[in-house]
């Protein structure tokens, strides 16, 4: 499984960024390789409109199975994510990446629309 987190920082101790489109980092965890890779998304600050779709496009490129984020994505981004075979979990804002991953493993996260 490949799991994506919206994150405010780079490692396991970073916090989940509650924002979807304007998340600072996108973290991709590959369970098989046990490898966590951080992608800096802060250039999104320069985007006036359409941050959600841009981030959704990146997530598509990372080919993940699961997305863990805070608030749900906005309408535009939600429409794009629906075209992907991706399970979305929300309300993980404020948790560390590790906590969010454990919560996911324990089936304790809330599925997103």
């Amino acid at each position: 499984m490949r799991i994506i987190f919206t994150s405010t920082g780079e490692g396991w101790d970073a916090k989940i960024d509650p924002r979807f489109g304007r998340t600072d980092y996108i973290l991709v965890y590959d369970e098989e390789k046990d490898e966590l890779v951080a992608h800096d998304n802060r250039e999104i600050m320069e985007v006036a409109h359409g941050a959600g779709p841009k981030t959704a496009q990146k997530i598509h490129e990372f080919k993940a199975d699961v997305l863990i984020t805070g608030n749900g994505p906005g309408g535009n981004a939600a429409g794009i994510l629906k075209t992907m075979p991706l399970k979305i979990f929300i309300r993980a804002g404020g948790m560390s990446i590790r906590e969010a991953y454990e919560a996911y493993k324990d089936d304790a996260l809330e599925p997103g629309a």
Binding site: D17, P18, R19, G21, R22, G74
Partner: peptide, 12 residues
Amino acid sequence: GCPVIASLAGAD
């Protein structure tokens, strides 16, 4: 519109 969406994004 977009500004209110950005206001809400990240809100607890």
